[in-house]
Simulated assay, not measured.
Amino acid sequence: MKAPEGPGFINLLASLEQGLGSAKALNPEPPLATLPPEVVAGYRHVVVWLIDGFALDYLAYAPSLRADLALQLETVFPSTTASAITSLFTGMSPAQHGLLGWQTYLPQQDRTLTVLPARETDHAGHSVALSSKSLNARIHPLPLVNRLSRKSTIVSPAQIAHSPYNRLMSGCARVIGYDDLEQLPALLGAHVRSVGQAPHYTYLYWSHLDHLGHECGPSSPEVREHLAAIDATYARMCGELLGTDTLLLTTTDHGMRAVNQRLDLRQAPAVCACLRHPLTGEPRAALAHVRPGRHRQFRHAMEAHFGNRVEIIAMADWLSGNAFGTGIAHPELQARAGDYLLLPDEDSYLVNPAGDDAGPCFLGAHGGLTRAEREIPLFRRSLRHAS
């Protein structure tokens, strides 16, 4: 079984990896035909702004960004931040870096890793924070910036800029934290002008839109209001960067879709009895690790409790189609992926909280294969000359 095919986020990363002068290209996919590496290499400064959770449907509320829409891409699978951002930081597909969603099963530790907040959880739901050293021992990242011929800067919200995950993924890059969206145009303009004439790469991240999509829903007034603020920031950012010989690429890690049906695995004890580990992955793309000899029982219990609300796909079929991407697979990919991929229907999401944890409640979600989750925009603006 294969995931949808088309110009992809991973092809954009190939354009960046090669165009920014990677000493060792780890991404086997071809660059975007509309953004060849020589075009990227021709700019003194390349800025990539990733706006977490920017769905294609949001274009209606962002006219400045919409005017610079260059391409529609397909993001990685699963269509989620932990997988896609790690791909951007490393230049590698999820199959290569091995982080398969918000939560990833670690077979050596027999624990669940929630990589972005750097926490590890046992079967009973007991969670501990990981230091940068411990997290590094779990994921062994290969930061893209360490392979580039040009210097790099990572610009992130202050609360996560120096987190264990960000510290590892930032590699040799300079790290800048900031507090508010409104700061970005002046901060970025000053930064680009301060680095001099040497070629430079800057990655910029903004996360609040994704939070609003989850909590309020993708069609909510809160999301629309924030999109207006993002769009105004983009217009000001372009003004600040005029004449700096900058290529500004703005994109996202995944889309967002409205959901209204919460499926709680704890209400299906016959299913839980078949699992050797709590579900990992994503609520819209869950990974099931099943006890030996319980596979038939697991499938029957899933069908009896959830009916056709959850599609059950044997992981062997999924992996054979390179659905997590191409390249040399992570040595633990098969063990981390488990036995089955569970895909809820378009309106549903599946949770499996442990212990006293109530688990997430969403009005918007992502991670799956629908257009709203998988297809993403790429915006492009050349700021080579002052107007």
Rank of each mutant, 00 (worst) to 15 (best):
D356P: 13
F324R: 09
A335E: 09
D356G: 08
L350Q: 13
N322S: 10
S320V: 03
L333I: 08
A337W: 12
A329D: 15
I328K: 15
S348W: 09
S348I: 06
G355Y: 02
G355I: 00
F324K: 08
A329I: 06
Y340E: 07
G321Q: 06
A337C: 14
A337L: 12
D339W: 02
T326S: 15
D357V: 00
D356N: 14
Y349T: 03
N352C: 15
G327T: 05
L350V: 12
Q334Y: 02
D357Y: 09
R336D: 04
A329T: 14
F324Q: 08
Y340L: 05
Y340G: 01
D345E: 15
D357A: 13
L341A: 11
A354I: 04
A323V: 13
G359I: 06
P353S: 06
G355A: 09
G355Q: 06
L342S: 06
G338N: 08
R336C: 03
N322E: 11
L341E: 10
V351C: 09
V351K: 00
S320W: 02
P331D: 03
A337N: 14
H330C: 06
G338L: 06
H330F: 05
G359F: 09
A337D: 14
I328G: 12
L342F: 05
L350Y: 13
V351T: 15
S348F: 10
A358D: 11
Y340N: 04
V351G: 03
H330R: 07
L341S: 09
L333S: 10
G321C: 07
L350A: 14
A335T: 00
P331R: 03
N322M: 01
R336K: 13
T326R: 15
Q334W: 02
P344K: 07
P331M: 01
V351R: 00
P344I: 06
G338T: 03
A335S: 10
V351L: 03
S320M: 07
S320P: 06
A358R: 09
E332N: 14
A354C: 15
S320N: 14
L343G: 01
E346L: 05
L343P: 00
E346Y: 04
G359M: 10
P360T: 04
L350N: 13
E346T: 12
G355W: 00
D339E: 09
P331L: 00
Y349K: 10
P353L: 01
V351E: 05
D356E: 15
P344H: 11
F324L: 13
G321I: 06
P360Y: 02
D347M: 07
